[in-house]
Structure formats: structure tokens, C-alpha cells
Design a binder for these strands. Sequence first.
DNA 1: TTCGGGGAGATTTTT
DNA 2: TCTCCCCGAA
Length: 725
Amino acid sequence: MKKERLNASQKAAVEAVGNPVLIFAGAGSGKTRVLTHKISHLVKEKIVSPENILAVTFTNKAANEMKERVRKLIKGKTSAISIGTFHSICARLLRNEIQKLGYTRDFVIYDIQDQNALLKTILDGLDIPKTDISPSGAGQNISLFKNRMIPIKKAKSQARTVLDKRLAEIYEAYEKALKKNNAVDFDDLLLLPLKLFEKHPEVLKKYREHWKYILVDEYQDTNRPQFLFIKKLAEKHKQICVVGDDDQSIYGWRGADIRNILDFEKAFPGCETYTLEKNYRSTGEILKAATTVVKNNLKRAEKELQAHNGEGEKLGLIETNDEGEEADAVVNALEKEIKINKRPFSNFAVLYRTNAQSRALEDSFRRNGIPYNIIGGVRFYERKEIKDIMAYLKLIVNRKDTVSLRRVINFPPRGIGSKTLDKCVAYAAKKKRDLFDVLNDPEGMEIRGKQADALKEFHAIVTKYAELLEKLSAGELVRALAEDTGVVRHYKESEMPEDRDRFENIMEFLSGVDEFMARNPDAIIQEFLEEVSLLTDIDQWNDEDNRVTLMTVHAAKGLEFPVVFLAGLEDGLFPLYQALEAVDQLEEERRLFYVGLTRAKDKVYLLYAKNRRRYGGESFYGMVSRFIHEIPEDSLEKINFSSAVTRKLVTKKGKVRMELKRTVTIFDDFRVGDTVEHAIFGIGKIMALSGSGENQRVGVVFKDGLKKKLIVRFANLKKVASPES
DNA sequence: TTCGGGGAGATTTTT
DNA sequence: TCTCCCCGAA
């Protein structure tokens, strides 16, 4: 952003100090700018000293960017300011205080995979067949309990069905196991500080004094525990400033509660509200399209973005047959843009709903020699080989961690199979000892021979490195460990081609550790583990390379690009049913579309494929095409995509069939809100539209007739009236 | 008892 | 496309 002066409303928001402050900042209205200027204002005017400021962001990347920009504004020391994500701030707090809750400082953080592994053993232990409840399903339910702050007791008492009772049981066992493993999950990172505040008022007091001024970015995406965290801290001094945009709340599935921003005034009476409505990012056409879409939402604060960058071009709409053609169409449009507007590759982003959608795009980009960066997908730190080494590290730091223990006790294969492990678990339970400790006592478990030796050897190597923890630097330790355990050898000597990649990933991981150590010379391994646990791919993304960026719309939040492709916009039938059931879901999807649109500065291309293949392409949930029709027609320009040759389709039986291109008008004249007449069901109102080409569907609520909500074909509908626009 | 091949099933978004 | 699980071989 240019180094201009702040505009009037920005300036007012920056200088408002004393009362709680709520800033509604629309897309591209200089939200980060206001926050960073506010911090600088606080420091320069000596309103609070840097160490008393807490600034919370949503991603590590946003935190780093904020740090950087604050550092440029204030020349002096900025390192004293606490800037970080909720999760990292809370993790740091717990590192210092968690003993009070009966954990040790060496606690480890479990990610989804660890969580599922733990749940799997729990489900096995409770004799619940996985056909009844899957580990991940149980995990999602538990996370929901935790995010809604439902304690185990309540979960049990309010359980009505057999399934609910089972889930409450699993919830209880899971919480017990976590604590026994001296481990916390992502939800705990937010919940445990609240528990601390409640049970140890002196801790709350300490942090209230420490963080006297609190700033929160992306406030619309806070969930209940996050809200309570800042509320508790800010309650006394009431020095708090939150910035957000209810139109960009897209994390409802993770417990984000849009009421946090809409009802901020209730939580902090006497607050001052500011609204930033000048958009410095997108052209008028893009803004108009985005605004008309999101305006259909019922739950939203009224505001109107004004464009500052001229009208710009219409939005391009491209229909293709399948995902391959869609990818080619992206390349096509991209090359045209490069030729006409002399744009570098880094000017483009392709956004989609689910990571799986990147595959076809990747193929086409590679074929056409277009450099690209993919954000997301299988995250580096979630790869098997990396998780294996991480598991060794976690186990060494915290020997109570049974999830990591199970993961590596027989990796690389050393002859300890499930039977041997079962014996160990049973023995540990009988003797009330930690699982790790009994490994050194195979005789007591009547394990002999090869297995006994292997157990002892495994115990010895972990113990050895646990003792070296203090003596070696993190870099040295990881390197030695990777060699010593045989993990490196396992991949190096393997014949399998994919193990080559794995070996190289381990090498990359090792240099990653070195890099971390260079940045934080005094760091201990626990700090490295913590950083890695909270890292995401978007954090590592840098825009210096001249490459096209591919990522999900969620990952794109907070970013901007001159040209944005929104790919895979066709819809499945399922979300349509869901849309009829849940208005909230519909509104969130709409906001997702809005976020996608407003990432673009100059030009948006909307793409959808009529016959996307189910697997390896389309997500089950589809995306947001039902909102294309909400964009004013004169803002859209249909672009005909024609691949050079007609596509050859090879069917399963090996027949070659030529696919002909057809143009089909989408959605005809129907709009959401239209009153329609159905030949059988009578008069109704359109709630949602879906699909494309010949598969178009419409969801209608009928006033009379047998059924209330139905999904019907366009062919059977007649339009009666449109709402006044 | 462990290991490895091969078949079957499963897929949102993220800290 | 990737992961998990079952089953036969060592």
C-alpha cells in the first residue's frame, strides 16, 4: 500500500483511545494499516509501553506482516510487543503456567493426526466398532463440545440417543488420555488459559497487568473461547480495539461466532464504533459484484464499500466441460493477460474451495510450462516421514506421549508388532506404570528373544537422547537422532521411488531445523516443536518468486492479487439440500464467495466445469455457483473457451469418443427470490440455484402443497414474479 | 508374530 | 490419488 496519509475515518479509528473500539473494516479498506498505525500511535504518544501491548492475528503470516510493518513505523524497539495468533500466544502462556493445572512444561501439542491416532486406541479400548463411530468423526464431535465449552458432565447429561451417550463416553476417555499423555490439542490451547484464569485469579491478574492494551485482527472469526480469552483480559482496563468484517466470516465450521462482532457493544458497553468503507483495492465492477452477492445475507452490519480505483473490466465467466478443460481455460486466459497487459506470473492467483481441486490445474500448468506455487494440500509438516521424526522428538521431550510412542516404536521396523505392544499396554495398566517405562522390562511381561532386545534397544535410544536434550543444540540433536534411529537409513536404502522424495524431505526438514536455530540461537527443542505444530503452509508462502499462486479461498484471506481466477464454481446437489435446511450455512458460503471476489484488484475470472469427475477433482460439497446469478448481469462477460482440438475422451472400455462443445445458458432467467409456479406443487419461492448446463437444479420453498421444500427442475417451473430490485 | 502385497474405500475449508 | 486393512508368506 502506498505511503499516503490516513483518510479521515482511518485516522479517527487510529486515534480513538480510552473506550473500547470496534472497527468494521470492509474488504480492502486498509484494515492492517489501521491496526499497525494504531499500535504505533499507542507507542509514540506513550499511551502504553510496548511490552503492555497484545496484538492477536489469525495466521502466523499476518502476525509476521504486522510485526514488520510496525517495525517500519516505529524505528525503536518493537520486539517487546506481543504479536501472534491466538494459538501461539496461548501456547506461550501455557508454557509458563501450565504446571498449575497438573501438566508439566514439556507438554506436547497434538495435531489432527495425533488426535485421530489417540481416538483410535480409545475406540478400540471401548470396543466401539469403527463402522459405528470413526475416529475423525468422534474428533469432530469432541472439538464441537470443546468449542461450545460443554463440559463432560453436561455432554453426558444432555445425551439422548445411544450415539450421543457413546460420544460423551469417548469425550471423557479422550480428555483423560490427553492429560495422561501430558498433551494438549488445538482446542485446549484456547481452553486451558481460561481454566487457569478461573482457578487461579492471580494468573489472570498478572496478565491483565501485562497486557493493558489489546488489539484483535479478523475479529469476526473468533470463536467462543477466543472471545472469552480477550474479554477476561480486557474486562478491567477496557483498553481494547477489535477490527473485523462480518462479511468475511468464513470459519463458522470451526466455531467462529459472527455474533462476537455483531454484539461487541453488548460485551463492551460504551464502545466506539468506526466503519471503514473506502476500498483501495478492487475496481468498481468487482466491488459491485461482490457487494450485490453479500447483500443477500440477513445477518450482517449495514455498510457500503466505495470503489476508489475506477470501474475496471467486467468479470469473466467461463464454462467448460470438465476439470481438464477448465485448467486449460485458466492457462489460456492467463497467457492472454500476460500478452496484453504485460503481467508477471506473480500477478495471478487461482482460488478454489478444496485442495483436491488443484490437481488438474497443476497438470495443465506443468504441461504449459507455467511456474506455480501451491499453498496447502498435504502440508510439509504433516508428511509421514516428517511426522515420524517429529514423533521421536516429541517422545524424547515428553515420555508420557503414547501417541508418538506408538507411532515410532516399530518404525523403522524392528520386530515389535501389535501383539508385543498389546502385552506392554496391558502390563503398564496392571502395574500402573507409564507405557514407556515398562519397555525396559520385557522379562516381567514374558517377552523374550528378538522382541525383548528390540524393546530394550528402543527404550535405550530414547532415554539416551532425553539425557542429551540439555547438552546438544536442537540442530545437532535432530541430526544425530535421525541417523541413530535408522530413519534416514531406512529411506536412503529403499528401492521404492517415493522413498527418494521422503529422504529428500527429511534433508529439507533438517535444514529447516538449522534455519530455525539460526533465527533463534538460544531455542530449545520444545520451542521448535511448538513453532512447527502451529505452522501452516500459508505462513511459508512468499510472493517474491515470479509464480502463479494456487490455493483455497480460505488460505487467501488477507491477501490480494491483480488477477484472480475462481475455479470449480459448479455445485453438487448436496449443498442445495443443505442450503434449504440451514440459512447460516448458505450465508457463510456466500461470504466465502465474497472473500474470493474481493481478493482481486483488476480482474476476476469465474470458472466452472459441467462434468467434473467425482474423485480427484470435485469436492463433495461443491462450491458457490448458486451465487453467480446474484451478480448483476451487466457485470458479467461470457468468455467462450475453445480448446484447439476437440477433446478426446477415452471411456472405461477403451472406446474413444469425441466430445462436442455446446453452449448452454446458465440459470436461464431465474433468480433467488423469484416467485415461481410449479406444475404440480403450485406457487413457491426460489431459495437456491445449483448445477450447470443440463444439470441445473433449483431449490424452492412452496407455500402450499404437500411438501414445503423441494428441489426441482427448471423445466417444470414458470416464473410468476421477481422481487423489486 | 511380523512383514508386505494388494484390494477397497474415502475425501471441506484450518489453528 | 492416497491410506487403511486384511490376509497369506516367512
